[in-house]
Design a protein around this nucleic acid. Structure first.
Length: 509
RNA sequence: CGGGCUGUGGCUCAGCUUGGUAGAGCGCCUGGUUCGGGACCAGGAGGCCGUGGGUUCAAAUCCCACCAGCCCGACCA
């Protein structure tokens, strides 16, 4: 970092000083969310929720376009439902919130106390496979009832020991798709279709490049036959899962009794899938594109694309400047960006100096436009792009800007993606030996680890023991077994045994 | 759930060792000068010091219990 001491960044500490703390500060400074009084739960503020709403809108359209429909299932799951799939139970048991009582009563000390115990406790859904499965069991009789292609937008609760805003909270928001198919092939195709849909979504909207692949046995979803994943590399070079798509085989159908009479007249269990993306994506966005001055939003997901900042040093120009701002806003709103109108805000708040400007920088709004008396004289605007250095500005005529706005947004979008892609490539390493592997993932300063490592492509003998070993030694795990794998067979870097392919290893969130 | 640390205006913290009735910076409000890169000056509001009990003439300060949070370990989208 060639930052002179005089260059003040909006966020303290910088990314290279303390990445986790930087992350928290960006979320606060950008007003995305804040911790709540309820442990592990957060308040998502309008700017953060606006990003989530845009994600929802886009994903929802994509689900619809592929034949899926939304529905809603209960928040509470009877304990008995939940206990049906053994692996599944084991996977989630430790993080379940359980409702045991229904009523509050005032006790002798004047305190509210739960009063009447439920005969059967209810689990607050950590995911809905079981309750949706129980419902599907009623719906499915014949192969003619298939496929069932349903998505649900919901909140879920997983009682986490170590919450972090967006990345790991006790309650979070997500979508969960649950489908049933007649054949294994169809279900596998669905699993893959959604993975591809997710990949397109994060690439085109969030400007996030990912690797797609399968999870190893030890990393896959409890109860799944196969878990497909999207793995992104954020700026501390760790991996973060951006979404998952599971092929559940007949495991859940068997547990829930989803059976149908097939074309030969025989009873058969359905083939199911489930898949999800969560509010964690907001956190991913922060770590992917944010810089030392705050959030940087890809235009296609930003709640506001362009903010217009009136500069009013002398009262006599106030009216004309505001009129000019409003006229430009109106003109811009009439233009399309992607599949919706350009979102423009004129910030007329009575705040002095650069304060307003910095607020929008920290919020990551893609384009800031200043209009002051000097611009007025030239019929011009002063334009700043969030993907460019903070101090850089460009003066251009109002009409020129209006004509170029869409293109400029597009260019920012592309630039962010290219930047992320380049970073990912630079920190991806083909590794041939155990020593090289350990060196790659060992910080030079263990007391205060610098940002190090990245994604390692290394041969692996397929054994769980090796995974365990590496996880214990380095906190590194297999993130993905690549689907479009082009690697040559070789030797496991840990044991020298034959290996069919390289897999991606990394530290992860 | 185990180990360590911390609870004082909205935020970050000082004061606690050596008890004597609460402070700073930031933020907030008002007025003025400012405003094109995070402004300045002046004035002001805001705290039963995490909760409960104990010791004492007197507790933010000492003692006990509880609660909450943070950090480190096992789990996770």
């Amino acid at each position: 970092m060639s930052n002179s001491a005089a260059t003040k960044t909006a966020i303290t500490p910088r990314r290279d000083e303390d990445f986790p703390e930087w992350y928290q500060q960006v979320i606060r400074a950008a007003e995305l969310a804040e911790p709540s009084d309820v442990r592990g739960c957060m308040v998502i503020r309008p700017w953060g929720y606006g990003i989530w709403e845009n994600m929802q809108r886009q994903l929802d359209a994509m689900f619809r376009a592929t034949g899926h429909r939304n529905a809603y299932f209960p928040l509470f799951i009877p304990l008995s439902y939940f206990a049906k799939e053994a692996e599944h139970v084991e996977g989630f048991a430790k993080e379940c919130a359980v409702v045991t009582h229904t009523r509050l009563e005032v006790d002798a000390d004047g305190k509210m106390k739960p009063a009447s115990a439920l005969t059967e406790p209810l689990v607050v859904r950590p995911t809905s496979e079981t309750i949706i499965g129980a419902t599907y069991a009623k719906w499915v009789q014949s192969y003619r009832d298939l496929p069932i292609l349903i998505n649900q937008w919901a909140n879920v609760v997983r009682w986490e020991m170590r919450p972090r805003l967006f990345l790991r909270t006790t309650e979070f928001l997500w979508q969960e798709g649950h489908t049933v198919h007649e054949t294994e092939a169809e279900a596998r195709t669905e699993t893959r279709l959604i993975l591809d849909l997710y990949e397109r979504f994060v690439r085109d909207y969030l400007a996030i490049p990912v690797f797609t692949g399968a999870k190893s046995e030890s990393e896959k979803f409890p109860g799944a036959v196969e878990t497909l994943t999207l793995e992104a590399m954020v700026q501390d070079r760790k991996a973060i899962q951006a979404g998952t798509s599971h092929f559940l085989g007949q495991n859940f159908a068997r547990a829930s009794g989803i059976q149908f009479q097939n074309r030969e007249g025989k009873q058969e269990f359905g083939w199911t899938t489930s898949w999800g993306m969560t509010t964690r994506l907001v956190g991913t966005l922060v770590m992917m594109h944010g810089d030392d001055d705050g959030l940087v939003l890809p235009p296609r997901i930003a709640p506001t694309h362009i903010v217009i900042l009136p500069i009013i040093p002398k009262e006599d120009t106030r009216v004309r400047i505001l009129e000019t701002c409003d006229a430009l806003a109106l003109q811009l709103r009439g233009k399309q960006f992607g599949d919706s109108p350009i979102e423009v805000e004129v910030d007329r708040r009575d705040l002095g100096g650069g304060v307003k400007n910095w607020e929008w920088i920290k919020k990551g709004v893609p384009i800031r436009v200043e209009i002051g008396p000097r611009d007025l004289e030239k019929d011009a605007v002063t334009v700043s792009r969030r993907d460019q250095p903070i101090k850089s500005k460009e003066s251009m005529s109002i009409q020129e800007f209006a004509a170029q706005a869409q293109e400029m947004l597009m260019s920012i979008q592309k630039n962010l993606y290219d930047r992320a892609r380049k970073f990912q490539e630079e920190n991806m390493r083909v590794i041939e030996s155990k020593k090289e592997f350990y060196d790659f993932f060992t910080p030079k300063n263990p007391a205060k680890p610098e940002i190090h490592g990245g994604f390692a492509l290394a041969h692996w003998n397929g054994s769980r023991e090796i995974e365990e070993q590496i996880k214990n030694d380095l906190k590194v795990t297999i993130r993905a077994i690549l689907l479009d794998d082009s690697s040559e067979p070789g030797q496991c870097v840990f044991t020298g045994e034959p290996s069919g392919r390289r897999v991606i290893w990394a530290k992860s969130y």
